[in-house]
Amino acid sequence: MTRRTDAHPELDRPDVLAPFFSTWRVGTPARQRLTVDAIARTWERRPWPAEGLRGYHVYTGHDGSTLLHHSQWTSEQAYEAFARTHRQERVDEIDTAVPGIERLGLGRYRRYRSTAGEDRAAAVPGCVVIVGVEFDGPDPGRQRAWVDAVFEALESEPAPHPGGIRAHFHLSTDGTRVLNYAEWESAQAHRDALAAPGDGVGSPTAQWTRVQNWPGLKSSTVDRYDHALGLVPG
């Protein structure tokens, strides 16, 4: 049985060893809504497809064009078995309902570190911010070192901006990217943080300057999303 939930996913679940992220471009806010509805119908009318899938969540991009997908797998092998047996029929049904979806690729990650956030454990995110960082080549050590440097900058932050709840840093399995799934109280809180003095979220400290000028840092992106659909085994 497949059950819908409004609850956001737990990014630090110990049984989720293969978190995946992907993006679909659908074009317009109306098509975002149609696609979310099509995904919900397609999944809810079928049994839950795999014991190794702990949850599947879809988010609408504030750009009015994209959807973010986050699936929580116990292993890559569990996903591969799903892809061989259940994925295509779902894709076909969704594409029939909403033709012309552009799928921009699947990113395979491992969660590395999350901020503590004990005092905000009960906070419900009003906005999810995805920060993507790409390096100029594969280097797992560099991925970890960069995230560790971000934590050093956060810990030394003299004036933390209000509104941030938790941040969950993921390392791509190919060694080239870092994805930060950041939970914020609202999109406005995040916009205010970006507009604060300094280059991005964070004060103009030596620690943040080091993060922003890391050797081999190729590019970074920041995108805001709303949680639109959660599907879990029922």
Rank of each mutant, 00 (worst) to 15 (best):
G216S: 06
A97K: 06
H168I: 10
G202T: 00
P162F: 07
R210Q: 09
H86Y: 09
D92I: 11
L34K: 15
P140W: 00
G163V: 01
S186K: 03
G52N: 05
R46K: 13
Y79N: 11
S156M: 14
A116E: 13
F82I: 08
S22T: 13
P158F: 05
G164S: 12
V222E: 13
A193L: 02
F82W: 04
T205P: 02
V150Y: 06
F169Q: 06
I130S: 11
W43M: 02
P215R: 00
R120C: 15
P160I: 08
F82D: 05
S22Y: 14
I94N: 00
G141I: 02
A228S: 02
A206V: 09
P162H: 01
A149E: 10
H62N: 12
F82K: 03
R144W: 01
R103S: 12
G202E: 01
R33A: 15
W24P: 07
E183F: 02
G200Q: 02
F151N: 02
P9L: 08
R111M: 07
I101K: 02
Y225V: 08
P160E: 09
R224W: 10
G200T: 01
D139K: 00
R108K: 11
Q188K: 13
R103W: 12
D95R: 15
A81P: 06
T96M: 12
S114R: 05
G64I: 04
W208I: 04
L68T: 07
H227M: 08
P215M: 01
D223V: 15
G64K: 03
R177Y: 08
F135E: 03
G163S: 02
W208L: 05
R4L: 11
L104D: 06
R41V: 11
Q143P: 00
E44K: 04
R177S: 09
V124W: 04
P160Y: 02
L231E: 01
L67T: 04
R191T: 11
Y79T: 11
G27C: 06
G64F: 06
R33I: 14
V150H: 07
Y79E: 13
Q143M: 03
L231S: 00
Y56P: 04
Q72F: 12
A7G: 12
D139L: 03
P158W: 05
R87Q: 15
S203I: 03
P125D: 04
R54V: 13
G117S: 06
G175T: 01
S172T: 08
I130N: 10
T35R: 01
T23L: 14
Q212D: 14
P140N: 04
A187M: 11
R113N: 08
V133Y: 10
T115M: 07
G202H: 00
T5V: 07
T173D: 14
N213D: 15
R224L: 14
R90E: 13
R177C: 09
V201G: 10
G175Y: 00
A167R: 05
A196Q: 02
S186Y: 07
V128S: 13
R177M: 09
P140K: 00
W184E: 10
R113P: 06
S114A: 09
A122H: 10
G141V: 01
